[in-house]
């Protein structure tokens, strides 16, 4: 199977703190990969390295390779702007811009050169449909995004990433700030989106990982303890730490 993205011996340091140790993971196309583990285990830090969001933190240093096809993302020469078009990201808290629903989605494509109104209209509709938000918002596209509920805002943020037609979407605990109903809508959406995208999702919620992911990686203290098919990892883990964690003995 073709790998959309593979990390090789990735290390992340915050100043003196060694947050991620020698992590090597491959992410398959059109699959959902879940990263689970207790708080502070480095899973979010690892995820944020994949689209170079850690560049924004001055004390942060990332070593190792992240290969997207033949291209090393973690290279100084990499055009971060072009990279982030290819690898979208959805955050823990919905973070729509203080603009209309339409403008929230048109924001990214405009920057990457799409100017024609007809194209943008089309793309906005497409993206909202993909995020299962079109029916709820088609009559109020030009109203503020802040009139939407938390769950709708998060789907808008997903639509916003989808609008750039990325290959990969990174999600950092996308439903942890949402109620159960919104959470299940997001989960349905993720299952639909994987028809088209490679999705890497960090989650605190093991049940969520079990429900939606194809493969799961278990992080502990900055290392990957186990990486396997989700069913295998949850039903028949090979490491003792993994079975302790998923049976709720710690974390």
């Amino acid at each position: 199977m073709q790998h959309a993205l593979s990390a090789k011996k990735l290390n992340v340091y915050y100043g003196e703190k060694h947050a991620v140790h020698d992590v090597s993971l491959d992410f398959a196309e059109k699959q959902v990969t879940a990263l689970i583990g207790p708080s502070g285990c480095g899973k979010s830090t690892f995820l944020r390295s994949l689209n170079r969001m850690n560049d924004l933190i001055p004390s942060c240093r990332v070593t190792g390779d992240i290969m997207m096809k033949e291209h090393n993302i973690n290279d100084r020469e990499t055009d971060v702007v072009a990279l982030r078009k290819k690898i979208g990201m959805v955050f823990q808290r919905p973070n729509p811009f203080h603009k209309s629903i339409y403008e929230n989605i048109a924001f990214g494509p405009r920057y990457h050169g799409m100017k024609k109104k007809a194209d943008l209209d089309n793309l906005v509709e497409q993206s909202l449909r993909k995020a299962a938000l079109w029916d709820e918002t088609k009559d109020r596209l030009h109203k503020s995004a802040f009139a939407l509920s938390g769950g709708q805002q998060q789907r808008l943020c997903i639509a916003r990433s989808v609008a750039l037609r990325p290959d990969i979407i990174l999600m950092d605990e996308p439903s942890s700030a949402l109620d159960p109903i919104s959470t299940s809508r997001i989960e349905e959406l993720i299952t639909e989106l994987k028809e088209e995208f490679c999705i890497v999702i960090v989650t605190h919620n093991m049940h969520q990982a079990a429900r939606i992911s194809d493969k799961t990686a278990f992080f502990l203290s900055g290392r990957v303890v186990e990486y396997d098919e989700t069913d295998k990892l949850f039903l028949d883990p090979s490491q003792k730490e993994t079975s302790d964690y998923i049976s709720g003995r710690f974390g």
């Binding site: 990279l83 982030r84 990201m89 955050f91 973070n95 924001f107 920057y111 916003r160």
Partner: peptide, 23 residues
Amino acid sequence: GLKEGSYALGATRWQTIYRVVLP
């Protein structure tokens, strides 16, 4: 999260300041 959201869409620092932070 607001600035991160803009960076994650591939906006540069100046685009983010001009199109997100200022408005």
